[in-house]
Design a protein around this nucleic acid. Sequence first.
DNA 1: GCCCAGGGGTAGT
DNA 2: ACTACCCATGGG
Length: 292
Amino acid sequence: MKTQIPINVSLDLEKTFHCGQTFRWHQKNGKWYGVANGVPLILFHDQASGVLHITSNTYEIQGEDLENGIIHYLGLNDSLQSIKGNALKSIEKSYSEFRSIFEQIMDTSLGIRILRQDPWEMLVEYLLSTQSNITTIKKRCECLVRVFPENHVQLGEESFYLFPDVEQMKRLDEGHFRSMQFGYRSGWLKEMINTIDIKVFKALKQSTLEQKLDYLTRFSGVGYKVANCVALFGFSDFRAFPVDVWISRFLNKYFEVTGNSESLMYVGQEIFGEFCGYVQEYIFYYTRTGCG
DNA sequence: GCCCAGGGGTAGT
DNA sequence: ACTACCCATGGG
């Protein structure tokens, strides 16, 4: 079934899907193919009319109708103006000389939105992301979902795989993961699957960032960087501030600070304020386009 | 062949 | 708290 949404806010699907926050969306002939919280979707953003055309096999996403589900998933109700204004105010408290760079970052990243993704999928995918480039991570994700043909969904000409839930993943052991070339992450993944209580995990949505990080970092293989990615992209906690090598280099270059992903998280929160997670994603995109 | 990647664990200072 | 080293593998 098809529907459409008129978009009257800034939205750049290319940047949003390619800024490193999600690994399973892909583009073909101007259309985007992906799965949003268990719902396969085909999206086409008509630049001329501003209309977002949606194709799916259902009328609802997690209890919301399809239109509102997409608006929620794409973060279209986030006021990017307010987020920018808030960050600017925070920056000017101590780092006003950074303002011009910040304006460049905002211009470069215009239209990027933080997706409301499934926290379970985020935990698995970011656990698999350690010490790997994005191309490799995408291949791992694709390899993993294809293990479960029962999750295959056909929509028009296109194939989709719903992300496996915990019970499905429990059917795999470390050897399976090794054979999928997950390397030393295989044992971490198997142990996490064995020990996680998915109900407790999903209840974290209502918790503070500190509580989320405390819970998540108890898993072997989940440090502060991965935990912050889960908090930001899975639990939509905009005070999360994931620090990978790119963000670390950026903070070193412009703010002359060094440290591990935990200490630099506090630095990011201090500099950029309560929506630092959003800013982090803009910085990540900016640095990787070669501007930074 | 070489260095790097959306890191994390561990052991030794 | 900070550092050095290891981990397994694919990209560029």
